[in-house]
Design a protein around this nucleic acid. Structure first.
Lengths: 151, 151
DNA sequence: TTACATTAAATGTACCTACATATATTTGCT
DNA sequence: AGCAAATATATGTAGGTACATTTAATGTAA
């Protein structure tokens, strides 16, 4: 559906403004769909992303600083997202013996199992972007990178 | 900058996954820049958008239902955003005389002044998307619309 | 070695989304 | 008229972002 019809704003200042709104709207649209897919597993999107980073490190631990470094959203509060995962016993937190300021965070076997179940359910496959051809996807990536150039 | 370098993930499953992440990341990047630009004026992005809708209606009032209809994010809580604007005396709320379930929301002259100051400061002009050519912008709009096709 | 800066994480606050539920008013049906 | 359904908004709760501040541990230099 055209963005004009989605948000009932028939006229934009110019195509730049339209693209800006379209971009933000489409990203929100994608994120909402993902969030709905994760809901049956009791995870939010940021929680899922952190679990995946922890699996990437496993069996080594990760610190909060490492999580922030790897996250899409640098300003999000990794510490509190880990709180939620810890409550659900999907991760453990222990003081790092080598540097007692830092905290070693590890994914539990329950956490690993959950990730497997989510992936076997195909939740992470259906990215909606597949409506584009490969060439179009390539184009899209180039355009997005250009928007952020020197940013 | 390429998305690979932005988030330090050198390998993606495929170009679709990469485009998905790129899209969400770029939208967040744009929104953060806008939020920073509005901050000196004491407004958040959703607050600014609602003020603009109200100016579009002015001197007629808008109801909460109308605001939701016009907003990008349908699930956001317009009622509470109006709370904040009312505290700052940028809008007024009065019970609609014709339908006492509804609430007439109007932008105040203070609110109109603030919008003018924001626009004269050029905050709403610099949309960052201007790094693209007109043809590229057109292409981007088409790709985004296609992603959401039949959505 | 004490004094100060730096670092790692946690916490506080304001505001936001997402979704469920409550309250008040109006409409429609019998 | 009276009552149920629909409508308009507000409120409650859980979790998230953004950003400032706090606390504890470590590094560093006089």
């Amino acid at each position: 559906m055209r963005i004009e019809d989605e948000i009932k704003q028939p006229i934009f200042r110019d195509d730049y403004q339209k693209a800006h709104i379209n971009l933000v709207f489409t990203a929100g649209w994608l994120q909402l769909r993902q969030a709905v897919a994760f809901k049956p597993f009791g995870l939010t999107l940021p929680q899922f992303n952190i679990l995946r980073i922890l699996r990437g490190q496993h069996p080594l631990p990760a610190t909060v600083a490492l999580l922030i470094d790897r996250m899409l959203d640098k300003t999000s509060n990794a510490s509190r997202i880990v709180d939620r995962l810890e409550e659900k016993q999907l991760v453990t937190r222990t003081v790092c013996p080598a540097n007692r300021r830092a905290v070693d965070i590890r994914i539990t076997s329950t956490g690993l199992d959950l990730l497997n179940r989510i992936e076997q359910a195909g939740v992470t496959q259906s990215s909606c972007i597949t409506r584009l051809s490969e060439a179009e996807t390539h184009q899209l990536n180039a355009l997005l990178d250009k928007i952020r150039a020197d940013g």
